[in-house]
């Protein structure tokens, strides 16, 4: 493991470069210990130029940190935008493929919504949600607890005793159902276009250390949250034939 910068709390954690791109508002953060060293937000929709890789370079340049000094490159694991997730994943794999490069890891993107906005949220249960297109949303229940642990404590991942706890698996549901789920769970909806507006933010990884998982460099792929459309149609045809 690469040592973090001297003078940074939790420096033994090392540098993590985080690439989150499950929505069209992507972000890149370099974190070490309990600190965000540098961060950029990037729009990733259709454009003449691709901006995520320049953001990676800018973040590392601002911090004066080279790729070889990174301990991990952490990709937002999804669910979310197929193409944006894949760009981040391919960038992560490219960085991790370099000699002496960082280990590849991932972190659930829906957790990054709550974790990224934690400094303005009260303790409670949230339904983190993003658009899944076709009238559906990806969603997961997430609990934000305060006072459950100290700064950098095991499981807390952050300062001020903030703790992010997944309270359900991620699901893809019709928009109406998502709202009902939030009401039944007594949860506040948070995410792009929700009552509490927030985007998955790369710096949220500081509160999610327990949820960062090492990933196999060769075989890892994001959780896209849905099959390719052709696979859905083929499965429907197969089901029709089986029922006929």
């Amino acid at each position: 493991m690469t040592a973090g910068p001297s003078g940074v709390p939790g420096a033994d954690i090392g540098y993590m470069l985080v690439l989150e791109a499950s929505t069209y508002q992507a972000s890149v953060a370099l974190v070490a210990g309990t600190r965000v060293i540098a961060e950029r937000e990037v729009a990733t929709g259709r454009a003449e130029h691709e901006h995520l890789m320049p953001a990676v370079a800018a973040v590392l340049d601002e911090a004066g940190v080279g790729v070889a000094a990174l301990d991990r490159v952490v990709c937002g694991a999804g669910p979310g935008s197929f193409t944006s997730l894949r760009i981040a994943a391919a960038l992560g794999k490219g960085l991790a493929s370099a000699p002496g490069g960082p280990r590849l890891a991932s972190v659930p993107s829906l957790l990054l919504i709550v974790a990224g906005a934690a400094d303005r949220l009260a303790a409670g249960t949230y339904l983190a949600s993003i658009d899944a297109l076709r009238g559906e949303r990806h969603a997961a229940l997430v609990r934000l607890e305060r006072g459950a642990g100290g700064a950098g404590g095991a499981g807390a991942g952050g300062g001020d005793g903030v703790r992010i706890v997944p309270a359900s698996a991620a699901r893809r549901l019709p928009e109406k159902v998502v709202g009902e789920w939030a009401r039944e769970a007594g949860a506040m909806m948070i995410g792009p276009g929700c009552a509490i507006e927030a985007w998955p933010a790369a710096h949220g990884v500081l509160l999610l250390r327990d949820h960062v998982s090492d990933a196999d460099l060769e075989s890892w792929e994001p959780d896209y949250g849905r099959l390719a459309e052709a696979e859905v149609r083929r499965a429907a045809i197969a089901a029709d034939r089986a029922g006929a």
Partner: peptide
């Protein structure tokens, strides 16, 4: 393209 960019940058 994304993989190549990152590998080129890292090396």
């Amino acid at each position: 393209v994304s993989y190549a960019k990152a590998l080129a940058f890292a090396t």
